[in-house]
Computed example of a mutant assay.
Amino acid sequence: MENELKLALIQSSLVWENPEKNREHFSKKLDSINGEVDLVILPEMFTTAFTMTPWNIAKEEGEETVKWMQKEAGRKKMALIGSMVYFADGHYYNRLWFVEPDGKSIFYDKRHTFTLAGEDKIYNKGEKRIVINFKGFRICPLICYDLRFPVWARNTEDYDVLIYVANWPQPRINAWDALLKARAIENMAYVIGVNRTGTDNTGHSYPGHSTVNNVFGEPIVFSKEEKILYATLDKKHISEAREKLKFLEDQDHFSLKG
């Protein structure tokens, strides 16, 4: 239906540093999706889990995963989004790819690398945001730790949807829940968070809590279980809320340097 965007959020455990097995796993997940879906959202580093030893993975695996995303997006006629370990220009990146059914692809490199885990010492950080036009919706994709920085997510480009893919651990899950709601309320946009489940090889546990919040920060779907969540975004919900509550017009204007 026009002005609607149908989503599937794949909340799943991940196999440690094994892109091939993870791709096989997510191919099966894609085959199990019910009904028509426009966009499928995968977790952060969905082919390896949150590894700080990317040299254990063949450098060409990033390109292989993008090819896999293009193949699956075309096969299922759904766009795919998720981040991965990606080697380019002599550096490692935590790189998110948005791949459309026709193969068109665009990437975003994680801006805020997670210093607590030493991600800033292993992966180059990104320098710019992207906004994707897809099915009549303007989508801004970000990655995990970016969630803690509201200025980076600030809605200055009239986006409709803010997406966070993550490996967000159990001890700080309360912050995940609260900040996703806050980003929705302050930006008057749908905010989606897709987290993984299970335990990784470093002993960190991940509790899911994937969700879709409407522009008022109210959850449309939420789960702690390993499952596929479904939601439909309505453009009318955004326009009516912004017309009635003109909060975005009252925000302060400033620019960032460096």
Rank of each mutant, 00 (worst) to 15 (best):
M78F: 03
K104I: 03
L180D: 04
H237S: 14
N18P: 03
A231T: 04
T156R: 13
Y190K: 05
A49K: 07
G118R: 10
I132L: 02
P171W: 15
C140V: 04
V99F: 11
D31H: 08
T51H: 09
L233H: 00
L80Y: 10
R129A: 12
N124A: 09
E17Q: 13
H237W: 00
F26W: 08
R148P: 00
H112T: 11
S13Y: 05
K135Y: 03
T202F: 08
E60G: 05
V151K: 02
V165T: 15
K128A: 10
V151C: 02
P43Y: 10
I185C: 11
E44K: 09
P169Q: 14
H209R: 14
V161R: 01
E60C: 04
V165W: 12
N56K: 15
V221D: 05
P54G: 06
S223N: 06
H253T: 07
N174W: 15
N34C: 04
T47A: 07
I33L: 14
H91G: 02
Y86F: 15
Y93R: 07
I228C: 02
D252F: 15
D200E: 05
R23H: 04
N187E: 11
E218I: 10
V66A: 11
G126N: 06
T47L: 07
A231Y: 04
A58R: 15
N94F: 11
D89K: 12
E72H: 02
L39M: 06
R95A: 05
A166C: 15
D160H: 08
E186M: 11
P101G: 10
L248R: 09
E24Q: 14
K125P: 05
P101A: 10
E60I: 11
F114V: 08
T115E: 15
K28F: 06
N214F: 02
H25G: 00
N94Q: 14
A178Q: 11
W16G: 03
K246Y: 01
T51E: 08
N201L: 04
G82K: 08
I228W: 03
D146I: 09
H91V: 05
L256H: 11
G217D: 11
N56E: 14
S27P: 00
N187S: 10
N18G: 08
